[in-house]
């Protein structure tokens, strides 16, 4: 246990001290912020207004709170995955630098090493994502706060779950990498691509039918939807309270992926939680089995 704790400490320290690795992990959230500042904010705002019946006036604070919540959910949905991938690249970096050979030269079990990477990557990702959450909460408090204590608690649960999912997924992918070039390639693909396929940059509802159906098999779709539902629940409740038509609100929910369908069936929030839980369990089982298989093969 002490050996595992020491490995986790070493890995986590390395992630935050290795400026290259740390700043690379922040590229995707930074891109999202730039997109938001330049045009995405207006796109969110306009698409919301388009879904409202003519003549309806929305208080500016509510509109800002709604758009801010959408940004917040998109930002976290991508960060939980991309930061997990970047922090977990340490397991590949260790192979590239030779540190892995140094670690395995000792009598430490390879399962302890694998668990060390997983736990430290989870911790590092959680630190970055919770820091981002805090900043977003401050921003929402300034532009328009509609979150209840339960919403905040559920957002924290969402982050924990999505980070666990991201770390498990990255652990499996990164196991097969062994060079700096592969790190760059996978890093670029994940950074550039994940934001699109999880609906962070653009709602999945705006994609073509086939792509929507394909993406309904991706746990990332439900991860984004969960965070979005919890970060916008208060804003939607306020919309109802000021008398906006329920049909219009439902239309907006559908348009921004708060309501997700799986082959025509609505997916409830509990089902989304279940999808993520099962995905994490399956990915972790695969990660463990791959490690066991590799160890047996080595022997």
């Amino acid at each position: 246990m002490k050996i595992l704790a020491s490995l986790v400490k070493r890995n986590t320290k390395l992630f935050f001290k290795d400026k290259g690795m740390f700043f690379t992990s922040l590229i995707t959230p930074a891109i999202l912020l730039v997109l938001y500042a330049t045009f995405l904010g207006n796109v969110y705002r306009d698409s919301f207004m388009m879904g409202m019946p003519e003549g309806v006036t929305i208080p500016e604070k509510l509109l800002d709170g709604f758009v801010g919540g959408q940004l917040f959910s998109s930002l976290l949905a991508v960060s939980c995955i991309t930061v997990a991938f970047c922090s977990n690249f340490l397991m590949v970096q260790d192979k590239v630098t030779g540190a892995r050979a140094d670690l395995t030269m000792s009598p430490v079990k390879s399962s302890t090493l694998a668990l060390g990477y997983y736990i430290s990557s989870t911790i590092a990702t959680l630190i970055v994502c919770f820091a981002a959450t805090l900043v977003c909460f401050v921003y929402l408090a300034i532009v328009g706060w509609y979150l209840s204590v339960l919403d905040v608690a559920l957002i924290i649960v969402d982050i924990l779950l999505v980070v666990t999912f991201g770390t498990a997924l990255s652990s499996i992918v990164n196991m097969f990498l062994s060079s700096q070039g592969q790190i760059s390639a996978v890093g670029s693909i994940v950074s550039a691509g994940y934001g699109f396929i999880c609906g962070a940059y653009m709602p999945i509802s705006q994609f073509g039918n086939t792509l929507q159906k394909v993406l309904s098999f991706s746990p990332g779709t439900y991860a984004t939807s969960l965070i979005r539902n919890h970060s916008l629940r208060g804003a939607f409740a306020e919309m109802e309270a000021i008398g906006l038509p329920t049909e219009a609100i439902d239309g907006v929910k559908m348009a921004i992926d708060c309501n997700v369908q799986f082959f025509g069936h609505d997916v409830s929030l509990w089902a989304m939680f279940a999808v993520l839980f099962i995905s994490v369990a399956v990915l972790l089982a695969v990660y463990i089995l791959l490690n066991v298989y590799r160890n047996k093969k080595k022997k």
Partner: peptide, 8 residues
């Protein structure tokens, strides 16, 4: 320190 820990 981190390497020494590997040997207990």
């Amino acid at each position: 320190e981190s390497r020494a820990a590997l040997y207990g």
